[in-house]
Design a protein around this nucleic acid. Structure first.
Lengths: 126, 126
DNA sequence: ACGCTGTTTAGATGTCTGTCAAGCTAGAGG
DNA sequence: CCTCTAGCTTGACAGACATCTAAACAGCGT
């Protein structure tokens, strides 16, 4: 299986000051934008959420196609977008393909969006 | 200025469990996706970052058009997308228009992406 | 009125999303 | 080994949506 999953190697290089700390340069923005863009679709957001919230941390594609009104190939396309954005990784085991999230990448994106100076965000009673 | 900024009222209703805690329903996803989509463009990401990292918390449009290779109307268009997504608000004062971020919205998006139960935010398990 | 700032409109060009059809991989059965 | 079936991906395409620019418009101060 030479067809390896392709992670964006750039995130380590460009990443991770919060948006509000200093302006992103165009290189950072070019790296981050595709990740947020991948999140910018309701189906993909739900797919990611279903994968991330699965008990073992992995979800079989066969369990992901059910809850949506779209066809199998469409799910497959969306999973590909998430994968190429570096947000999830996939692996075939026997008949089935399993996806899991890349927690570090999501946490970094979260860190980039965070405006409040981390600890004292208690003010927000949900 | 009767031209009030229109915030998405839905965020309060649907929001804010982390993605990884339980699957988003289609209503939540439909509310969140446009916000992430607004972040999914390099120019908008830089605009948001420039606004968020400005000293007084506000940036004049006149300062935002300079660093980009695109024309004024294009910047205006991107600011509109960010505004309609609820990520920023704008206000005209005299000749100039100033934008500022809506920190709570960005922090919520960050909270939704967070996977690690980081100690600082562990308290708000819903 | 005039110039400066920023937005809106109209329209060309490009990108995304979804579907059907076809392909590939793995396991079961003959 | 061959065929059959299930699971998932890829390719080709139509329709919808985004991005960008130039030109016209609107608000403010002189």
């Amino acid at each position: 299986m030479s067809k390896q999953i392709r992670r964006l190697p750039l995130l380590d290089a460009v990443c991770c000051e919060p948006l509000a700390r200093e302006p992103l340069d165009s290189n950072q923005a070019a790296t981050l934008a595709p990740m947020f863009k991948a999140l910018g679709d309701p189906v993909r957001l739900r797919l990611l959420s279903m994968i991330a919230s699965t008990a073992g941390g992995e979800a079989c594609v066969c369990d992901l196609t059910g809850p949506f009104d779209v066809t199998g190939p469409t799910i497959s396309h969306h999973l590909r977008v998430l994968r190429e954005a570096g947000l999830i990784e996939g692996e075939r085991r026997g008949t089935w393909v399993y996806y899991r999230v890349v927690p570090d990448v999501l946490d970094r994106l979260a860190g980039i969006l965070t405006v409040e100076p981390s600890p004292a965000r208690a003010g927000r009673a949900g």
